[in-house]
Amino acid sequence: MLGQVLFSGLALGSIYGLVALGFVVILKATDVFNFAQGMFVVCGAYLAVTALSLLGLPFPLAILFIILGAALMGMGVHAALIRPLSGRPILSIIMVTIALSIVMRAGIEILYGPAGRTLSTPLPSGGFLFAGLRISQLHMTAAAVSWLCMLAFGLFFRFTSVGLLMRAAADSHEAATIAGVKVDAMNRLAWAIGFTLAAIGGLFLGQLQIVSTELETIGLLALPAVVIGGMQSIPGAILGGLLVGVIEQLASTYISPKSADVMIYALLLVILLVRPWGLLGQKAINRV
């Protein structure tokens, strides 16, 4: 029983981690605490509905459609809302992201109607028995793809020149500008990546659940995940996501479904009290 619960917790947690990673990429690059991340997840799910059900694209093309669509939307959000507001008080920008999420929700409900839609993809949906555990292929696929995306992003961020430019721009806008970096382009790229990672999460969540704007609630689990893992930390976001997934499933099984939220936010509170910089975050270093 425990193994089964851990499996589903880790599988879900991988998706949360992916969404949380997108959140951290945006936060690191532009210092924006993006409350619209949950709606980015919803957007991903609806992009999938659009590509697969409405346009009837073949699956590989649909994936491309989702990624490109999400990246463009991320850039659009940055260009239209975030860049013009750069330098404004952090609260104004947070309010803008909240407003954005509300507008996106309304927009989606106007475009697609309020009724939820089911998403069917050619991804395997059966199950098999492994070491006494019932393994759901969809959960497996979701976890595997999430890990692949996280790994790909990690390699890109760590080892490529563009990744270095992104890290540099995130680290110090001033120094990066002086070094000739188009900080704007880097920030735009960060929003594109953040949106895309959320959208991939949405593709899976939409298939595990049904596609509706209610998926936002699940997408917003990225927030506690990020705070628990460490606000500025990329491995922290992934760890936070996994923890949130496992806690959710354990609490649902051994206490009650409602207690899951309590447990997640209890951990968040403990972290904020004891280790405010998160599990893998770095304590702020004071400059000379």
Partner: peptide, 16 residues
Amino acid sequence: FEGLSILENLMMGAYG
């Protein structure tokens, strides 16, 4: 760049 290594800090100069 506090988050980058010394080598990366130098490389940044050229990447720009």
